[in-house]
Amino acid sequence: MSKVESGPHAAVSARNLRKAYESGRIIALDDLSLDISEGEFVAICGPSGCGKSTLLNLITCIDRPDSGSLRVFDRNLTRINDLSADAFRANDVGLVFQLHNLLPHLTALENIQVPMLGQSGSARDRSQRAAGLLQRVGLSDRMNSLPTTLSGGERQRVAVARALANQPRLILADEPTGSLDSTTGERLMDLLMELRDSMQVTLIVVTHEHGVAEKADRTIRMLDGRIDD
């Protein structure tokens, strides 16, 4: 299922990234450099305002750096245009949010198909692929359930399945366990790690929680827009 070749190629390569807001008054990222290998599970930790979310926005092409260079899977994201950024998010990246952010009027099965719209394949194919993903996250019996009828953990599992919809090479999870109790959160992390192993995706998790960070291959701590060595 994975599009990733095994080996220590760089999934993310950032050099001297700088990002400021409010005319330079707030520096979110300050000369930040990092490398993340393909298939690696990296946890990014740090206090609020340290630049975690800004880094995540840059890696997902939601935002652009002011200076420096950023490559994800050899694609230069530094000056990528909007259309290419959309395509990049659709095809190469899977996002898991702190809140599940499922569309409330669509069933679990349909929510997973949302990123697939506009991709090749028939609606029935998409539906079958989505059903397969639901099975992978252990919710094949809830495919026709609306988000309001799912528990918090189930919603996040659907969100994980949605992140995998287009077989991305990179999954970014922003505080994925932030709205879950510890047991459910731990199960979700186990699921993400299992999927990382089976699908050989690169996994970047932004988290405040030590328990989550401890599961990662590597933890990057940030402080004031820099990596805190």
């Binding site: 009027h105 099965l109 349909e110 609606a123 194919d125 539906s127 026709n144």
Partner: peptide, 21 residues
């Protein structure tokens, strides 16, 4: 495993949105 439906289309999604409101 239950059988999945015919699949989501933009039209179906829009209909759901209108029905929801």
């Amino acid at each position: 495993m239950p059988t999945p439906d015919k699949g989501l289309t933009l039209t179906r999604m829009i209909w759901r949105t209108l029905h929801r409101q």
